[in-house]
């Protein structure tokens, strides 16, 4: 039996991708880019689910990842619709200028 990479590497990759997603969320100004970073985070989590599913030799992880995908798709649809609305009202895609909910 040839050996492959240890499972931990997959998990670390998942963590790195997640961190990159968070970085994108924190440091970018355009709403669309922020949204895409969110998708990146979700994908990282999916990878983590699948890796654990391999470890435990069960299919439940795949199911979870599947549901995450479904929800992410629905969320993307609605989120983009909201972005469209915001753009129509504010004429800007800069997230810092959408701050009328301040104290």
């Amino acid at each position: 039996m040839t050996s492959g990479p240890p499972l931990a590497w997959y998990l670390i990759l998942s963590a790195v991708l997640f961190a990159l997603g968070v970085a994108g969320f924190l440091f970018r100004k355009s709403i669309i880019t922020i949204f895409m970073s969110i998708e990146l985070m979700l994908n990282a989590v999916n990878l983590s689910f699948v890796a654990f599913s391999y470890q435990l030799k069960q299919v439940n992880g795949h199911i979870f990842a599947f549901f995450v995908m479904v929800v992410a798709a629905a969320e993307a649809a609605v989120g983009l619709a909201i972005i469209l609305t915001v753009f129509k009202n504010r004429e800007t895609l800069n997230v810092d200028q959408v701050n009328s909910m301040k104290y």
Binding site: V22, L26, V95, K102, Y103
Partner: peptide, 17 residues
């Protein structure tokens, strides 16, 4: 405490992190 409510999404995300 209300100063945290800046309306800025990115700072909210920082606090979540």
């Amino acid at each position: 405490l209300k100063l945290f409510q800046s309306g800025n999404i990115r700072s909210y995300a920082t606090w979540v992190l």
